[in-house]
Amino acid sequence: MSQAVPAENLSARGRLWLTVTWASFLTASLATMVFFAFVDPTPIVALLTPTAAIPTRTALYSVGFFFFWAICATAASLTAWLMSAPSDDTTIGNERR
């Protein structure tokens, strides 16, 4: 039931995904904090959607956090993806080796 999943037993890909998610969570938290300390989102949203009702700041901060999380996760996954060297057999020109 509460049998902890041993991290060693996760696939390399699984560990990579967890690392990407976790690292981007940390950086997104930081980004959210710094960004919203300087920028109040309500006037911007009011400007963008003048007719619609303005959501609460809590909602805007939350959406902002997930936005940052998505951006950071994209950067982290790209890094993880590019870090893995292309294996010989898939490198262009080396297919038949």
Binding site: S2, A4, A7, R15, L18, T56, T58, S62
Partner: peptide, 27 residues
């Protein structure tokens, strides 16, 4: 959003302290 964050943080507590435990420190 209040509901969401209560459950989100509650889930993180459960996951970290009940499920992952020493693996948080290690990994």
């Amino acid at each position: 959003w209040e509901t969401f964050w209560i459950f989100f943080y509650g889930f993180a507590t459960y996951g970290n302290a009940g499920f992952l435990r020493e693996q948080v420190c290690r990994y």
